[in-house]
Amino acid sequence: MSFTIKKEGEIVVVDVEGQLIVGNRQELKQKVLDELERGEKKFLIDFAQTGYIDSSGLGVLVSLSKKIREQGGELRLANLNDDLKTLFELTKLDTLFQISDTRDRALASF
């Protein structure tokens, strides 16, 4: 499991490879907060290569969403498979995040 960060124009894109769970959530949080501290405002987290997400992983996404908003930025999510969509729907987090079906749509939505 790992996180890859790259820039697409002015958008910071994070790919989550493998699971986003209690064992690695702090790594994701720190990587995004480092970018936020550097002055980045637009963030996209892409789950195309993600297995499963546990409640700690969801909690980190909620926390990052708040921190990015507090800095006047935006966080969008993309490429949730059917099971991840179910997870977001169960927890009603689909109402909190702006979620796009594809990376391109998410990038175009900023």
């Binding site: 546990d54 409640s55 927890t91």
Partner: peptide
């Protein structure tokens, strides 16, 4: 909904 914790048992 904006709490970081509290979803474990629920899930």
């Amino acid at each position: 909904i904006e709490r970081e914790d509290g979803r474990g048992l629920f899930l």
